[in-house]
């Protein structure tokens, strides 16, 4: 698949010292890629630079193999869906949607037809005459999305578009966006700090930290094979245990786990997802521990086990398995799958 957007060596530094550096990213045509990271990590800087609202200090941005770095926002083949919708309050929904097409000098009949089509696509048929003030937050965001979709941009930029919506609506909008993306085949760059949103929406996720890209991978790979300690900490729940490198294995107390990454040591950090932590009371292998807390969370339970000098480890257990455990009970802890990192 061809590359629709390419960012090469982009850097931007603010007076505060924050910014981004060494940003290299290729986005394939029709791909939905998410920039994920905490506040201040630089994801919005990257997005606004693609849209032309910020001028990078270095590097280049290419859309469909053409550099757009010197172009102002109005000349770029991009369109942005903003966090706060940014509808024009003095215009009706129709006028909000028609503005961009009028600038492109489209015939009136075509504009009318396109607006009716796009409103059907975003599930707001017949809303043309309403003013933004008459719409709910979710409806306003749909109009904002429709406004961008109408322009058929080469790259659609979405700046935390659902963050102002409540959890239920956010979930619905995610599904709708994914559906719209598969219908339109648009290339989308989505910015969020919500990892659940990123994991559920994206073809690939770009995890950012302190202005740099930590990892670019598909959601399942980001979750299962984090490349850095930061990604492992940031995505999902993870247990971290200190270990000692001994050639092919890393030893955590009595337990030895494979040194798959061939870490040099001497110390390493072993990371285990709670769902990969096994608890057993009938065996002698594994790390000894005592059940400290059992929290039933609907169809599963989170069990905390005190491992003494290795700290507390959390394990996800089925409701039935958790019911068989009791507070203070001695168990043996083993791991179904681990990943390891050099100790920083």
């Amino acid at each position: 698949m061809s590359i629709q957007l390419s960012i090469r060596g982009m850097a931007k530094r603010y007076k505060t010292g924050e910014g981004v550096s060494d940003i290299n990213l290729d986005v394939r045509k029709g791909e939905l890629i998410t920039l994920l990271g905490p506040s201040g990590c630089g994801k919005t800087t990257v997005l606004r630079s693609i849209g032309g609202f910020l001028k990078p200090d270095a590097g280049d941005i290419l859309i469909e193999d053409r550099s757009v770095i010197a172009l102002p926002p109005e000349k770029r083949p991009t369109s942005m869906v903003f966090q706060s919708y940014n509808l024009w309050p003095h215009m009706s929904v129709y006028d909000n949607l028609a503005f961009g097409l009028q600038i492109r000098k489209k015939p009136k009949a075509e504009i009318r037809e396109s607006i009716a089509d796009v409103l059907r696509l975003v599930r707001l048929p017949g809303a043309e005459k309403k003013s933004p003030a008459q719409l709910s937050g979710g409806q306003q965001q749909r109009v904002a999305l429709a406004r961008s979709l109408l322009l058929k941009p080469a790259v659609l930029l979405l700046d935390e578009p659902f963050s102002a919506l409540d959890a239920k609506l956010r979930h619905e909008m995610r599904e709708e966006l994914r559906e719209i993306q598969s219908q339109t085949g648009l290339t989308m760059v989505f910015v969020t700090h919500d990892q659940e949103e990123a994991l559920s929406l994206s073809d690939r996720i770009v995890v950012m930290n302190h202005g740099r890209i930590e990892q670019i991978a598909a959601p399942q790979n980001i979750y299962n094979e984090p490349e850095s300690l930061y990604v492992a900490q940031f995505i999902g729940k993870m247990n971290f245990l200190e270990g000692v490198v001994e050639a092919d294995v890393i030893r955590v107390g009595e337990l030895a786990v494979p040194n798959a990454k061939r870490l040099a040591g001497p110390a390493a950090v072993v990371a285990v997802r709670p769902e990969d932590v096994n608890l057993d009371s009938g065996i002698k292998e594994g790390l000894p521990g005592a059940v400290k807390q059992i929290m039933v969370l609907g169809h599963y339970a989170e069990v905390s086990v005190n491992l003494g000098k290795h700290g507390i480890i959390r394990s996800f257990q089925s409701k039935d398995a958790a019911q068989a455990l009791s507070l203070g009970q001695h168990v043996r802890v083993s791991f179904a799958k681990v990943t390891s990192f050099p100790k920083e």
Binding site: P73, E74, M80, N86, L87, W88, F99, R104, A144, L151
Partner: peptide
């Protein structure tokens, strides 16, 4: 809001 002006530029308004 500056963002309202930004969104106008974004859709191609000079």
């Amino acid at each position: 809001p500056a963002s309202v002006i930004e969104s106008a530029k974004d859709i191609g308004a000079g």
